[in-house]
Design a protein around this nucleic acid. Structure first.
Lengths: 161, 161
DNA sequence: ACTCTACGTCTGTTTGACAGACTCAGCCAG
DNA sequence: CTGGCTGAGTCTGTCAAACAGACGTAGAGT
């Protein structure tokens, strides 16, 4: 492997998509909240008890997710109770599913105990386990991960130290 | 959609793969460090200047990644210089590529400016853009994300409040 | 009037991030 | 052999955020 300067150094990280995504998802608890919502736990009290997050953090992360249009706060009313609100994914939030499945895949493979993973993802159509895979727009399945590389996109900016 | 209690509430989150993954990846800067290394930036000084992370955080996150076997610290020597070290992905680290690509996909689609994403991922074989997709072990491509759901795996533990 | 539940906010403590200065080891120039 | 240069961290003082847990509140039921 060459020791010449990596090409990535020529490009700014200011508008890096990974960095922008992590500005939201990297806040403590954000992904845990999303896990609860993806699993159908949409109400504050249940989320708090199930996830173990502190009430303050849960409150702040829900506000952050609403602010970024990833979840929306929706009114509901149980019979004989007053109106309350729950949190549902928007399309933007639903589009995070590959991220969540990729995390579950990796965590299940590399961080599980001897019993195996605590969660599996299944294809509702056939019941088989589902995973993420890399595919290209020409329809090739990408098996060897070294066959994939990054390149600057249309929004890339030069790196200024 | 029913308002009955979500099935997920019956299961503990203690050994959740997503939670375990985020115990590492959720620390501030972890994913940024991984982005640099995936892009070929493997040396402390270059990582620090390119990513903008503080030296202290970079140092701590590299130590965390080494501790969890995601990167390894490898000696190298440039001609006419003393021995130094750089950071390379292990197999466990390389297995995070779907997570990184999923993050880049989502960030590029939902958080880019008008110019489009700053980074694209390409299939080295054909040059077309690459994305993550969901597939099941029976070989079905999963197009509608609602066709996927989670279920308790062999390591699942009951939820105890 | 009192209680219950769901949904937060407040408080005091402790942990962690930040910018930037400092340290250190080895190589090289003079 | 003294002084400077580079890469790779560590240290320091300040400020923001997380934590556990108590408290507040709105409306429905008893």
């Amino acid at each position: 492997m060459s020791t010449s300067a990596p090409a990535a150094l020529a490009w700014s990280t200011d508008n890096c998509p990974v960095g922008r995504a992590m500005d939201i998802l990297g806040e403590s608890g954000t992904v845990i909240v999303l896990r609860e919502i993806f699993n159908g736990v949409r109400r504050f009290e249940l989320m708090q008890r199930h996830s173990g997050l502190s009430r303050a953090v849960l409150s702040h992360r829900l506000a952050l997710l609403v602010e970024h249009g990833i979840v929306q706060r929706v009114a509901y009313r149980e019979p004989g109770d007053r109106e309350r609100h729950e949190y549902r994914l928007t399309q933007r939030g639903f589009d995070l599913q590959p991220v969540m499945v990729a995390l579950a895949d990796w965590g299940g493979r590399h961080l599980s105990g001897a019993d195996g993973p605590a969660v599996e993802v299944e294809h509702a159509g056939c019941g088989a386990r589902a995973h993420v895979a890399l595919v290209c727009e020409d329809g090739h399945q990408i098996d060897r991960l070294r066959d994939v590389r990054t390149r600057p996109g249309p929004g890339a900016l030069p790196f200024t130290p």
